[in-house]
Design a protein around this nucleic acid. Structure first.
Lengths: 128, 128, 128, 128
DNA sequence: GTGGTCTAGACCACG
DNA sequence: GTGGTCTAGACCACC
């Protein structure tokens, strides 16, 4: 389910975090679901358990998971992270927009691009 | 003029690159201007000359500077980087917009923010 | 395997780049092979790790390697650099040929030399 | 007559050497002609006299000039450098050709390029 | 262990 | 004085 890109310069744990975050945000992993254990997910991804551990820790920090000692990790209810997440993403987008403005890109150009983006219904993957 | 943030995870030389890039792009440093020497800027920033040199090398690669051994580094004419820069920045903005869409932020919200951004005449600094 | 010439005016890192480039281009180092670590190659060449690192960084820029922090550097698949490389080398050759023409060397002389070069099966090393 | 390119990464004295070499080789400066004095050429080029001095020294080493103390520098007779020059240029061309062969460029491609080069009668400038 | 960054200090070629 | 390179040695994040 999760595909790691070893040529990506970002650390692996970060890639895992991002994928799981997306899966949770898109409800592919539903609230209260039990996450796979650190060990089993590490096996599945052929990755060091430390790495998965780190990803889980990050996700817990960000409010996507909660961990019960001895029982495992679970997906939290939406409310915990939804607002936070949107805020963070919106802030990044604003930064990018400010840079665009500073670089001389017009509002009209950006709005046109927005129309394109929101027009496409079936591509919600981030361009690379 | 340049403020370094040592708590920032990004390397120092990259911060220097970014700041100088902005200054050049915004014409705070005009074409053909002589840049401060590697050593003097290093002193000013309390940083090792190697670090500044690395920043200059990167800026040269990106077409913002040209450098002549024994004479100094100079700001290039606009045409060399302008188009390239806009393309890069626009791409980053699109990625951010796609993420925003995926996170459930509506087109209307984004357009409203754009109005604010392009309306404000006196804040063209990138938020941090 | 790699011999450094300290009397050569070119920087050491550039010599390393050139040798490795040749080895990769001639498939002496096959795609996906793990390169020796920065430190180990530095030891082997009796050179500072920084110097090797710089060479690797250059090779990555040129598309011969990709490198993953904490895991090592790896040879890329052919396609990434092959075309680019041929173009660059052909351009150098044309420059040399134009100089030869300007110096009064005839087309016939050059063609004769070409016959020799492409006739010899066992000397494909660049003369130095 | 001589145009210096301050954005060229090669040292200035080398650019001067190359231009003068070309002028001598193409008989724009005839044998036994007196060269301009170091000081006057330095003035004309807006360059440090040391730099011109160095260029003259190099040209003398290569056999293009000879210097008579107190009288100035003079262009040598052809025989002194002609053979030498052709040899050096030919060697460079061979190196380039060997690299081309190693990069998988065929003899036919090179010969075709040669036809083009020797076909053009009016472009004997080195491509850049 | 790996690569990435940084410092301090040195030497060189160039102008 | 200028940029370019190199060394020796250090610290960090990641796996």
């Amino acid at each position: 389910m999760i595909l790691l890109d070893y040529r990506d310069k970002r650390p692996i744990y970060e890639q895992i975090v991002e994928k799981l975050e997306q899966m949770i945000a898109s409800s592919a992993l539903e609230p209260l679901t039990k996450m796979p254990s650190v060990r089993s997910l590490a096996m599945e991804l052929s990755v060091n358990p430390n790495t998965v551990q780190r990803a889980y820790a990050q996700l817990e920090l960000d409010g996507y998971l909660y961990t019960v000692s001895g029982r495992g990790s679970f997906v939290t209810a939406e409310s915990e992270w939804k607002e936070n997440r949107q805020g963070k993403i919106l802030k990044e987008w604003q930064d990018a927009a400010l840079k665009a403005k500073a670089a001389g890109i017009t509002k009209e150009q950006l709005i046109e691009k927005l129309q394109e983006i929101y027009g496409e219904q079936h591509r919600n993957e981030v361009s690379e």
